[in-house]
Design a protein around this nucleic acid. Sequence first.
DNA 1: GTCAACATTTCGTCCAAGACAAATAGAGAT
DNA 2: ATCTCTATTTGTCTTGGACGAAATGTTGAC
Lengths: 301, 301
Amino acid sequence: MLSISQVERDTGLSKDTLRMWERRYGFPQPGRDPSGERLYDASQIDKLRLIKRLMDAGQRPGKLMNKSFQELSELGAQQTVEQQDDSLPAAHTDLIKLLQSHDSSALEQHLSQLLLRQGLQQFVLTTVAPLNVAVGEAWVRGELAIFDEHLYTEHVQDVLRAAIQSMPRRQESPRVLLTTLPHEHHGLGLLMVETLLAAERVPCIALGTQTPLSDIATAAIAHRADIVALSFSAGFPLRAAAAGIASLRQELAESATVWVGGRLVARLKQLPKGVCRIQSLDDVRPALNAWRAANSRSAPG
Amino acid sequence: MLSISQVERDTGLSKDTLRMWERRYGFPQPGRDPSGERLYDASQIDKLRLIKRLMDAGQRPGKLMNKSFQELSELGAQQTVEQQDDSLPAAHTDLIKLLQSHDSSALEQHLSQLLLRQGLQQFVLTTVAPLNVAVGEAWVRGELAIFDEHLYTEHVQDVLRAAIQSMPRRQESPRVLLTTLPHEHHGLGLLMVETLLAAERVPCIALGTQTPLSDIATAAIAHRADIVALSFSAGFPLRAAAAGIASLRQELAESATVWVGGRLVARLKQLPKGVCRIQSLDDVRPALNAWRAANSRSAPG
DNA sequence: GTCAACATTTCGTCCAAGACAAATAGAGAT
DNA sequence: ATCTCTATTTGTCTTGGACGAAATGTTGAC
């Protein structure tokens, strides 16, 4: 039985939201401890996590709240199956099966082999990126546990970081600064972009996740960055993203271009001038070429 | 000018805490937007971040709240100087100077060189661990920016992950599962432990940070872990840590030993039976030997 | 003087209900 | 089919009161 703050941490839903849902929809319906504080049981947490995931995929709370766990799970399965228009490659299902069997070392081996066979860019574009989605969907369908996802993320990170480090010396430009705003802790997208750029010999300054807004601008100037790339996962609050991007764009003045990527950006409407939307990882190379074309006169090579 | 939720994200102080401080101490004293909502300016955010850091180092809010930014900074400097009983090695100040000069590639090179010269375990114990502390203190003294810390963390992570991957095949036992509780996103401690263990050929299952409590137990069983190692940074709420540890200990039954490490653990009083306190990284090897001694009869080798 | 037990202060979190504004959905017009 | 305007949905913010856990200070015994 967990308190409201523990549920907030576990699910990513704020205390205010949890209380409001209880007030409006009657779910969750936690018990109370002797001093009147909410106590949530495990089954409600599981349901909340599932609801959160479905909302991140675009569903609205009002439609989900009165459904049972079973119904929600079916909804998730149904929705993810719809998206599997193009048949899922056998290589992906193999990897997911390895995850399910909890064979850590075999997973690592398999990933490394794929990297060698496909090459860096192909590996990222055709294996890692779709696999991330597939793993998330497998969770919604109940086929993978959260810790399976964590293990997957760690191994991919290991493989990608090793690959980045092994790349030869970098060119001079463009210098790309990679990070996320505070509260966005999903850093795999950044790492994939860094990998793609490393394959192009582009020098990156990777700050990891959750850099305060004002620090991003300062860092961009200190490191003389030409491009500042931000990543937003589907769960990031839309308003906060828009506000953060606008604010950063202003602070940077004209010193750098801003790239925004991640699954959230499709939902962003109008972007300020000087902000480039990276819809998918396939857009990274074109965006890079565009930058090079635009800046070839003043800084050749 | 930032809203209360943005400040919460930037500083790690909850909305409730920010409002309570305003009520009790008169700081922070945000302005209001047209609809009456709080707006914090940049100088107050800086001060709040500094206060948070000093609190993580053991200070109490009541003593800090009526001091100016200047006084707080001096307090931080004074306190960190006291701790520098043993003179700081030149190698450390060199690395910090590299950080200050924003020379990303030189930093990476320097770290790799130190690793080669010192060997894996020495590198972690005598370079990385003290350097982490030194970098944090340099921030309190205003000598490094937050993004400098981020960059440092990323590079250390690159070096350590590469080193771990390059280690030869592992033994059979003990199998160590590494992770943190939800809301603890500081994963460098885990990585250092994993590095030390890798040097001993101990197989690790690294789940990264923020694994839900119930998932940790499930994962430990699924991966047949002998040891579950958790890390808690200084800023983690003490109560939550104690509660989490006790709960995990119970869920695991007798199937695995629990290790708890990180700067918080010194403040934990009594630990449940079957939980081992790792005060510093130097304790990792002894704890490992202790485990081997205790389990040599049932599972030799 | 040192340690243990108790009292007090400090401090963070929780609760409730009301209010507002941003985002979305739906209806209607061009 | 696309746009605009309105209605609904939904998350976050507000206030002020209360409680309980941790840290600190005080007392008393050895």
